[in-house]
Design a binder for these strands. Structure first.
Lengths: 142, 142
DNA sequence: TATCAATTTCAAATAATCTTGAAATACCGT
DNA sequence: ACGGTATTTCAAGATTATTTGAAATTGATA
């Protein structure tokens, strides 16, 4: 069978009462009505230990109205910062900050044309927005 | 102190130098190498004005490692808070805060079993995680 | 070379989010 | 009713993210 290291079938003799063995093997007096199969618990543990660094970084980048608008705009066309300045009625320095956040998350990149920087979505950014579409379709929420 | 006061419907040869009319009609001396068609600009404007409230709220909820782990766990099975306490090695009050964030975003709900609260994904939450899958598939980039 | 315009960078101020521990709530079994 | 337990709520502080304006950077032009 699968080798799992932790399960000590014997309940710790911590408190006196409540002989109901905790179905998940931890020190919690959960009632029998709430059963959780050991192999389910294994799968939960597995899910919990997966690395979430990249998705969290991406979601942080997406979690701002200005940045999301920038991404939506870039989906239509590559755009120069000066266009954002006008379209979003936004100072250069503020835009620059948010563009950097998006760039650090790997969602956008730019090319230089003289003094002008033309931003565009990366392939990754485009894929992320694809996923976003799937989400946004149900903005029924709450 | 100099303020470019033009904002007329068409062209407006604002400053003297730079005969290149700004292709997007704004006060910016962008070079001819960067053209942007008026109807493209229209589509960009449209994309920018769309409401982003709901997606931003959802991304904010997703943008935290603990919360993402909670969601991943709930995908496997409905779970009692006490299980999270053990599995995530986390205080009740901290968990409660994050569970509330997820609940306010419409991603999770709970049912009460005596003193125990059993959290589960909402339909919306499940759909969101579906979109997340599409994203996570390319966690290559950086 | 000096100047101008587009953009970034920096530092300080402000705002938002998270953590922590204590206290409150609600339900259960006795 | 009582005592215990699971959970939430609250307020204070700690941490992190964002805005702002000024200064630095860079390329183009005269």
């Amino acid at each position: 069978m699968s080798a799992s290291e932790e399960t000590e079938t014997e309940v710790a003799p911590h408190k006196k009462k409540r002989p109901v063995a905790c179905s998940h093997g931890y020190s919690c007096n959960i009632p029998a009505s709430y059963e959780i199969a050991p192999e389910t618990l294994e799968r939960v543990k597995e899910a919990i230990t997966l690395d979430v660094g990249t998705p969290v970084a991406v979601f942080k980048a997406l979690a701002d109205p200005l940045r999301l608008r920038i991404l939506k705009a870039l989906r239509v066309s590559d755009l120069c910062v000066c266009v954002f300045v006008e379209l979003l009625d936004c100072e250069y320095s503020r835009l620059s900050y948010h563009l950097k956040v998006l760039k650090d998350a790997g969602l956008v990149e730019y090319t230089q044309e003289g003094n002008f920087l033309i931003y565009h979505l990366t392939e990754f950014g485009r894929a992320v927005l694809g996923g976003v579409d799937a989400i946004k379709s149900l903005d029924c929420r709450r």
